[in-house]
Design a protein around this nucleic acid. Structure first.
Length: 849
RNA sequence: GGGGCCGUAGCUCAGUUGGGAGAGCGCUUGACUGGCAGUCAAGAGGUCACGGGUUCAAAUCCCGUCGGCUCCA
C-alpha cells in the first residue's frame, strides 16, 4: 500500500467509528511551554483529557507531524529512527476505553491492512489484567504472545513535564529470525530489530503534576500512536524505513546528483540516510515557521542541518547541497500537506543560506585549527572545546581532521569542559515556579478583557513560590500573549495584599498571570483585577496598525508579502513578512501614506466571532502555521483588511494617531522585518527630533540646508586638521634644530624644555627629530595643563640600553608625583606638580653624568 | 534563559604589560614594463561599533547598549 493511501485509510477507518478527523497541529506546540516540539499525536489533545477546555468532540483521529531529536545519534544508522515522522492516532476523551481501543486496533491491522496475525504480539502493563483479558479472551491471543512489562516500557507519558499519562499496551510485528539479535532474551520489546513496536495504545487515567504527583484524570480515555514510517516499512515489505516511498525518492535524487552507490558501503548509506531524513525534517519544520537560529527550536534545526552538512563533507560534497532536494520532498508530501507547495522557494532559500553560513563558519574554524597546529602537534581539551564552543566546529570534525593530520585530540578533556558548560547553563536557567499548583476550583478561567479592563473576580488556581506567584482568575481581563501581542500587565488587589502582574500567558488552556507580590501577604480569595490601561491602549494601537501595515504591504509589494510573524508591544511593533529584497525609500513612503490615510479616515474596526469557513469566505488572512479552531475571531477594517486575530484592537483606526516605519532589516533569508511606532510613543519621538533639529540649526547658524552645512564643516575641519599636521611637523623640525644647536653649544647632554600649547603629536615629533640628530642625550619636554604637568622623556640611541626612558620616567614621576610609562627610547607621563620640574631635571642630569 | 568569541581603512586582518593607528589586497596618480596577481614611487581612504567609567594617558582595562558568530538549556 502506498503511504498516501495508508494515511487516508487510517483516518477513514476511525471516521466510520464516529471519530472527528482533526488536522495535524503545527510542529510548534501551542500553549505548552514545557515542549519544544510537537513530539506525539496526543500533544494537541492534552487539555481535553485534563478537562481544562470544553470538549469539542469525544472521539478524534489524526495524522500528526512529529519531531524528536532524543535519538539523533541513531538516525540513519538504524532501520527505524528519524527526526521527523508522522503518527497515526485515535483518541477518546471520557468516552470509550480499553476494550474498543484494542478491538479496533486489531480490526484495522487485520482487516484493513491485511497483516498476518501470527506475526503480531502484544504487551500490557504489569498489573493491567483488564487489558490482558481483552487480548486473551476477546481477541483470543495466546498467552505466550502477551507480555507484561513494567513502568519503563508500558507506562506512558506525560509528554513534556506534566499532563495526562497512564498504562499502555503495545503491538509488535515480527520481522523474522534474521533480524534477531540472537540472544535467548530476544522477545517482543527487545532492543534489536526483530520486533518493531508498531502501535502503542495508551490509556490515560492520571494527570501528572509538575511535582510528579499523579491525580485522577477528569476525562480518562484512549490515546494511541502508530509510527507511520515503520508501518509503511512493514506493509511495503522493506528492510528499513529508508527504503519506503517516504524516503527512497529522496535517496534516489541524492545518489543521482553525485553518482553515489547505495547499499554497498555502510558508511555512505548512513550519510545518505541522514541527509534524506534531515532534509525532510527541515522542510517540515521550516514549513511550520521555525527558522534556523541560535536559540531554542531554531537551534535544534541548525544542529540538524549541520549534522547533514558535515556528512556531505564526508562524501566530498563541499557546496550547499541539501537545498536541492526540497522540491522532491514537497512533491512527495503534496497530497497530504498541500500548504508546503506555496512555501517551496522560501524553504529552499532558507536551507541554502543556512548551508552557506555553516560552510563559512567551517572555513573560519579551519583557520583556527591551522593556528593551533602551527605551534604543537596535539589538541588539548581546552583548545578542542574552544573550537567547538566559539567557532562552532563539530567535535566529530575536529577528530576527523586531526586524524588526517596525524595529531591527537584530548577527548576526555573536551568532554569534561562540555559537561562543565552544561552545568553552568542549567544552573543559571530561568526561574519558573517549581511549586505545586493549588486548585481551588476545577473550572477554567475565561477571558473577558475584550470588553472590560477591570473586574471583581476570584482566584481559582495559583502556584506560589516566595514572591513569584502564578495565578488563574475565574474571569481574566488580562490578555495572554498570543498572535505576537505581548501579555497584559496590571495589578491584582486582594484582601491585605497587592500583586503586580508582570506578564500574562497561556498554559494548557489556562490564562496564567505571572505576578510579583508587591504588598502584604498573599491569600487566595476575592480580588479586583485591573489591566494597565495606558499600556493596553498603546498595544492596541500597535496591533491594529500591524493589520493596516499588512494590507498596505500586500497592496504595494504584491500578494507574496505575507505575514511571517509579529511582535506587538505598547507603542511599537515588529512585523516580519516574505519579500526578497529591501524596501526602497519610495516603497516605504507609499506604505506609510496608505496606512496613515486609513488612520485619518477613522474607519471603525469591526470584531466578531464566526466559523472558520465563513471567515475564509470573507477572504480573511490567516497566519501560516497557526492553528485555528472552528470558531474564529475576525478583525475587519472596511474591505481593506480582514484578518483572523484574537488580539486586542481599537474601536476605530483614528485611535492609532499616527504611524511611522523606523527601520527595516532582514530577519532571515527571504523574510524582511520592519519596525514601526505609533500613537503617543511616535509623538514623543517626533517631539524629540524636532527639538534636536532646532538646536542643530542654531549651532550651525542656519535653518535650511543643514546637511550641506554639516558636510561643509566636516570638510573644513579636515582641511584644517591636515594643515595643522603639516605645520606641526615644520614647527617640530624648527624647534628640534634650535634645541640641538643649543645643546651642542653648551656641550650639554640634557635637553629640558617647556612646550606649552603644543599638541602631544608635535612634542613627540620634536623628540623624534632630536633623536635623529644626536645619539647621546636625554631629554625632557613638558607642558602645564590645568595646573598639572605632562611630560615626555626621550633617550638618545646610544643610551637606550643603559638608561631606558621607561625606567627613567618611573623615577621622574615619583619626584613629580604623577604616573607614566612607555618604551625604552621614549616614555610619557603626567599628573605631576609643575613646581617640582627643576628637581626632576636635576635628577636626570645626575643620571647622565 | 545562561555562557564564550568578535566588531580597527573598500576587503582580509595585525596591534605585546595601557604610552605614536598599521600590513596585505584593492583604489588614484606618475614612471618603468611583452606574459603568470609585472615593477617602482607618491597619494587618498579611519568617530578603532556606540555610550559611560578608571587613568596623567584607552583601540587596549571595567560597566552598559547595539550588531555578528558560536555553545548550552
Amino acid at each position: 500500500m502506498k503511504s498516501n493511501e495508508l494515511r487516508t485509510s487510517f483516518l477513514e477507518f476511525f471516521k466510520d467509528k464516529d471519530h472527528t478527523i482533526v488536522p495535524s497541529m503545527s510542529l510548534i506546540p501551542r500553549d505548552d511551554p514545557s515542549l519544544l516540539f510537537t513530539s506525539a499525536g496526543c500533544v494537541q489533545f492534552k487539555p481535553l483529557w485534563t478537562g481544562s477546555v470544553p470538549l469539542p468532540y469525544k472521539r478524534a483521529t489524526s495524522v500528526q507531524k512529529c519531531f524528536r531529536t532524543s535519538d539523533l545519534d541513531n538516525v540513519g544508522k538504524t532501520r527505524r529512527h528519524h527526526t521527523f515522522f508522522e503518527m497515526l492516532g485515535n483518541f477518546s476523551f471520557g468516552d470509550y476505553f480499553k476494550e474498543d481501543a484494542i478491538l479496533w486496533a486489531w480490526e484495522y491491522l487485520l482487516e484493513v491492512l491485511g497483516i498476518d496475525p501470527t506475526r503480531l504480539s502484544v504487551s500490557v502493563y504489569k498489573d493491567d489484567d483488564e487489558a490482558y483479558d481483552i487480548w486473551h479472551k476477546k481477541i483470543g491471543l495466546k498467552k505466550e504472545r502477551i507480555f507484561r512489562f513494567g513502568d519503563e516500557d508500558n507506562f506512558w507519558g506525560p509528554a513534556g513535564n506534566s499532563g495526562p499519562c497512564g498504562p499502555c499496551s503495545e503491538i509488535f510485528f515480527d520481522l523474522g529470525e534474521k533480524y534477531s539479535c540472537g540472544k535467548k532474551t530476544c522477545v517482543p520489546g527487545c532492543d534489536c530489530d526483530r520486533y518493531p513496536e508498531i502501535w502503542n495504545l495508551v490509556f490515560p487515567q492520571f494527570n501528572q503534576t509538575v511535582a510528579g504527583e499523579r491525580l485522577p484524570l477528569k476525562n480518562r480515555g484512549v490515546d494511541t500512536g502508530m509510527g507511520f514510517e515503520r508501518l509503511a516499512a512493514v506493509l511495503q515489505n522493506k528492510d528499513s524505513v529508508f527504503q519506503t516511498d517516504l524516503f527512497y525518492p529522496i535517496i534516489e535524487d541524492i545518489i543521482k546528483h553525485k553518482n553515489l552507490k547505495y547499499g554497498e558501503d555502510r558508511r555512505i548509506d548512513v550519510a545518505i540516510n541522514v541527509m534524506a531524513d534531515h532534509v525532510r525534517a527541515l522542510v517540515f519544520a521550516i514549513g511550520d515557521g521555525i527558522i534556523p537560529s541560535n536559540e531554542e527550536r531554531g537551534y535544534v534545526l541548525r544542529r540538524i542541518l549541520r549534522r547533514a552538512v558535515r556528512l556531505c563533507r564526508n562524501l566530498a560534497i563541499n557546496d550547499p547541497f541539501l537545498y536541492r532536494f526540497v522540491p522532491r520532498v514537497i512533491d512527495m508530501y503534496k497530497p497530504a500537506y498541500a500548504d508546503l507547495v506555496e512555501r517551496r522557494e522560501e524553504i529552499t532559500l532558507i536551507i541554502k543560506s543556512e548551508e552557506e553560513g555553516f560552510l563559512a563558519t567551517l572555513e573560519k574554524g579551519l583557520h583556527q585549527f591551522d593556528e593551533i597546529c602551527k605551534t604543537r602537534n596535539s589538541i588539548s581539551g581546552e583548545q578542542a572545546f574552544k573550537l567547538y564552543d566559539t567557532y562552532g566546529f563539530p567535535i566529530e570534525l575536529i577528530q576527523e581532521i586531526a586524524k588526517e593530520k596525524g595529531i591527537s585530540v584530548d577527548e576526555k578533556g573536551f568532554m569534561a569542559m562540555l559537561e562543565q558548560a552544561r552545568e553552568i547553563s542549567k544552573a543559571e536557567a530561568k526561574f519558573i515556579p517549581k511549586g505545586e499548583w493549588t486548585i481551588l476550583n476545577d473550572e477554567n478561567g475565561t477571558f473577558i478583557g475584550y470588553d472590560k479592563v477591570s473586574v471583581e473576580t476570584k482566584i481559582i488556581k495559583f502556584n506560589a513560590h516566595e514572591k513569584i506567584i502564578e495565578i488563574v482568575l475565574k474571569e481574566s481581563p488580562f490578555y495572554a500573549e498570543a498572535g505576537g501581542q505581548v501579555g497584559d500587565q496590571g495589578e491584582i488587589v486582594g484582601e491585605g495584599f497587592k500583586l503586580d502582574v508582570k506578564d500574562t500567558y497561556w498554559h494548557q488552556g489556562m490564562i496564567v498571570c505571572h505576578c510579583k507580590l508587591a504588598q502584604g501577604k498573599f491569600t487566595p480569595g476575592k480580588v479586583v483585577a485591573e489591566v494597565d490601561l495606558r499600556k493596553r491602549k498603546e498595544s492596541a494601537r500597535a496591533h491594529t496598525a500591524t493589520h493596516l501595515l499588512h494590507a498596505a504591504l500586500r497592496k504595494t509589494l504584491g500578494e507574496h508579502a505575507r505575514q511571517e510573524g509579529s511582535f506587538v508591544e505598547p507603542g511599537r511593533f515588529r512585523f516580519d513578512f516574505t519579500h526578497f529584497k529591501p524596501l526602497s525609500n519610495d516603497e516605504i513612503n507609499v506604505i506609510e501614506n496608505i496606512v496613515n490615510e486609513k488612520v485619518l479616515d477613522n474607519i471603525p474596526v469591526e470584531k466578531f466571532n464566526t466559523t472558520l469557513d465563513e471567515a475564509k469566505r470573507l477572504g480573511a488572512m490567516a497566519i501560516f502555521g497557526e492553528k485555528y479552531g472552528d470558531k474564529v475571531r475576525v478583525v475587519k477594517v472596511n474591505d481593506f483588511s480582514i484578518e483572523l486575530c484574537a488580539g486586542i484592537h481599537l474601536d476605530n483606526t483614528g485611535q492609532i494617531g499616527l504611524f511611522k516605519i523606523i527601520s527595516q532589516e532582514a530577519a532571515a533569508a527571504g523574510i524582511r522585518r520592519v519596525e514601526a511606532v505609533v500613537g503617543l510613543r511616535l509623538f514623543e519621538a517626533l517631539r524629540k527630533s524636532v527639538s534636536t533639529i532646532k538646536e542643530l540649526s542654531q549651532i550651525l547658524g542656519t535653518d535650511k540646508d543643514l546637511i550641506k552645512k554639516a558636510y561643509d564643516f566636516q570638510e573644513r575641519l579636515k582641511e584644517l586638521e591636515k594643515l595643522h599636521r603639516e605645520t606641526s611637523v615644520q614647527l617640530a623640525r624648527i624647534k628640534a634644530n634650535e634645541l640641538v644647536r643649543k645643546l651642542k653649544k653648551e656641550k650639554s647632554k640634557i635637553i629640558a624644555q617647556q612646550f606649552d600649547k603644543y599638541s602631544p603629536d608635535a612634542i613627540r615629533l620634536t623628540a623624534d627629530f632630536i633623536r635623529e640628530d644626536t645619539k647621546n642625550c636625554i631629554g625632557i619636554l613638558y607642558q602645564e595643563i590645568n595646573g598639572k604637568l605632562n611630560y615626555l622623556i626621550f633617550v638618545g640611541q646610544n643610551l637606550v640600553k643603559k638608561r631606558p626612558a621607561n625606567k627613567l620616567i618611573k623615577d621622574v614621576s615619583k619626584i613629580l608625583g604623577g604616573g607614566g610609562g612607555g618604551r625604552p627610547h621614549m616614555a610619557e607621563g603626567g599628573g605631576g606638580d609643575p613646581k617640582k620640574v627643576a628637581e626632576a631635571i636635576d635628577f636626570l642630569k645626575n643620571k647622565i653624568e
